[in-house]
Design a protein around this nucleic acid. Structure first.
Length: 175
DNA sequence: CGCAAGATTGGC
DNA sequence: CCAATCTTGCGT
């Protein structure tokens, strides 16, 4: 039998390709009980290298963001506002310093809520999505229509970064 | 070593 | 509109 897990090659492309490509994929999580929960990825944001002033990598490599400078397919988590763990997937080749922020799963929206649902913490820093037994991404076969909008909470970056439509959101199902 | 700000959220 | 809560990055 074969696994639907997405491997490193999926993440080695430009972040502007990977971010929308993740929409509709399954975020798989094993909380340690051997039961695999799957959540549909419904919202992402792209952070693109040292040039992008909204990207953490724009200030150069630091202890906090060093994983962003590695090859794609790794997890980048960071703690913010004293409350929230943000989940990101590193993309591109080593040195590209790009990543996708996971902002929504199923009906839950907001990166802080994603981190809470998944029970993230510092131990996930650098986790390899190709081999991890507790968090990975799977092909779902779903192709969901989406829209792109400017990114949230990065006003400090100024133009053009604050206006680029690098936030991708699955259109809500009609009923 | 001090301190301001943060890829947010929930409540008033 | 604002507090919560704490890590990080930068200035002194």
């Amino acid at each position: 039998m074969s696994s639907n897990r997405l491997h490193t090659d999926f993440f080695l492309r430009d972040v502007l390709e990977v971010a929308p490509a993740l929409l509709g994929k399954y975020l798989a999580r094993d909380y340690g009980d051997g039961i695999i929960r799957r959540y549909v990825i419904t919202e992402t944001e792209a952070y693109r290298g040292t040039e992008d002033l909204a990207c953490h990598a724009s200030k150069g490599k630091t202890a906090r963001n060093e994983v962003m400078f590695r090859q794609g397919g790794l997890v980048y988590v960071y703690f913010i506002y004293g409350i929230h763990w943000m989940l990101n997937f590193v993309t591109g080749q080593e040195g590209d310093a790009s990543a996708v922020l996971i902002r929504g799963l199923d009906d839950f929206s907001g990166p802080g809520r994603v981190g809470k649902i998944l029970g993230l913490d510092q131990t996930f820093y650098g986790e390899n999505l190709a081999v991890s037994r507790r968090i990975w991404v799977e092909e779902s076969g779903l192709t969901l229509p989406y829209t792109s909008l400017p990114r949230v909470g990065i006003h400090y970056a100024g133009e053009p970064w604050v206006s680029l439509p690098w936030r991708y959101i699955v259109k809500r199902t009609q009923d």
